[in-house]
Design a protein around this nucleic acid. Sequence first.
RNA 1: UGGGGCGUCGUCUAACGGUAGGACAGCGGCCUUUGGAGCCGUGUGUGGAGGUUCGAAUCCUCCCGCCCCAGCCA
Length: 571
Amino acid sequence: MNDASDAARPNEAPEHFVREMIAADVASGKHGGRVVLRFPPEPNGYLHIGHGLRPITLNFGLAQEFGGRCNLRFDDTNPVAEEAEFVDAILADVRWLGFDWGEHLYYASDYFDQLYLWAEELIGKGLAYVCDLSSDEIREYQGTLTEPGRPSPYRDRSVAENLDLFRRMKAGDFEPGARVLRAKIDMASSVLPMRDPVLYRIVKASHHRTGDRWCIYPMYDFAHPLSDAIEGVTHSLCSLEFTDHRPLYDWCVENCSVPSRPEQTEFGRVGLTYTVMSKRWMKRLVEEGHVRGWDDPRMATLAAQRRRGVPPAAFRNLARDLGLTRRNITVELARYEHAIRTELNKTAPRVMAVLHPLKVVIENWPEGHVEEFEAVNNPEDPSAGTRKVPFSRELYIEQDDFLEDPPKKFFRLAPGREVRLRAACLVKCESVVKDASGRVTELRCTWDPATRGGDAPDGRRMQATLHWVSAAHAIPAEVRLYETLFSVEDPMGAAAEQGVEYTHFLNPKSETVLTGARVEPSLAGATPGAAYQFERLGYFAVDPDSKPGALVFGRTVTLRDEWAKVQKKGG
RNA sequence: UGGGGCGUCGUCUAACGGUAGGACAGCGGCCUUUGGAGCCGUGUGUGGAGGUUCGAAUCCUCCCGCCCCAGCCA
């Protein structure tokens, strides 16, 4: 994790309340001075940017800082929602972000036997009972935000009867919904989760790991604190919405004979503008075909960001820079993109690619003659070296880089004007060839042999430097340009406000597929996942859709673009 | 409405009773063989009202606003 990207800001991250708390606990010898954290995803879907920017980087990062460890535990207590496929995807995402759980990969389902024993312990202590109320009835008895609940008629069953019933629940004697095991706490509590919460329910579904061995499954509120205790977790970090559950977390740990005393601390979640993060809403985008799949580069999943070419270091660095508070926050897309550019600027090799080719013929360059110019691979990193780029009589430049009648602040090529071709030479536009409709189809230029390499011996300065490829040597490639999936900052908020579906705000231009692009020949062997900067255009990654001889690039993020800004202001 | 959480530039975030600072965005400029990168400059933002204090973003009181909780989801 200490790669070059952190050089500008060595080691120490800014302080925040959780770091201070852990430091204080270590100093005071609490938990024996140990630091054990955990990242506890439920394998019921894909991880998203919010996970990458907070819980993952926070837990694994703090564990590293304090020389402790971070367990990766799947909170798989609900077989109807969970699948092994998601386990694999989550593992891959965490690994991709650069974290290692070592031997500490766990599953809450591995603790089912122990959890069951603790449930019986609670029954024995008179702290839990089997309740025959239906879920509707339980809700009725629960009261409301302002009114206290009423005790279940089954609340005072004997220990023996509870034990018998619970064992029969486990044995499969009852149907789902017939009975549940509830904690006996306080039906009048102002904290709703304390009103005799359900601890176990009957579920007759196959579990991705335990199969059909169980037909009763523990609820999160029971399984989570006890799983933490089993693993010796010292600091159980979770998001704000679990704050109300903390009293119950503590109740479980206090009333079961657990081997350790973990403590829960809550932090705020991270959201991103122009995207939707929730599982349910992302799922709809996939199912309704608005995107190519869960890893479509426009999606907010980590798998999608990886495919798009986002470097994992950008996540770690941005997560660190965001700090940590007890507030749910929304990060501006620009800040996410900034983190990506900062990283890629240091690491991505530069290369030339022409997205919308415009033919250029160098009239004073001999037919059939080829020369190789030496191009710098990364001006930010001399160790990246140089490469040879072939130059010949017929080239392609970007259509956007020529205007027959240029406006004031347009510095690029125009009739009679001279510009530099990156790493090559200076060329001057002598004339323009048009088709019958008047469209410019070709530029006739001349080059100045004295400017080989790009510098003019007489010192004349160029207003612009253009990227280019040699027509005969360039490789055709498909290039996919991405913009935000939604056209408004807060799709869910806007939908609620305007009373329309959030899909109403899908950006029709979120993906543009270009099939006529040409890239320089050095890219011939590029492999999926590789990230490049297409000079003057942006950062692009080789998409896994690429096949031998048929490269597909996807745009990770554009370069900052002053000209685009000028145009926007003028238009 | 009961309980809980939270209010500092547009967005994040510092300041832990002693000059409200940084990052991103924006704006202006410099530089440039990427209109990239880099560099320089640019901001009266502490939700409100009282109070305590020599001094309050920070402590107290009241008010206002936003978020979370009434799954046999996590």
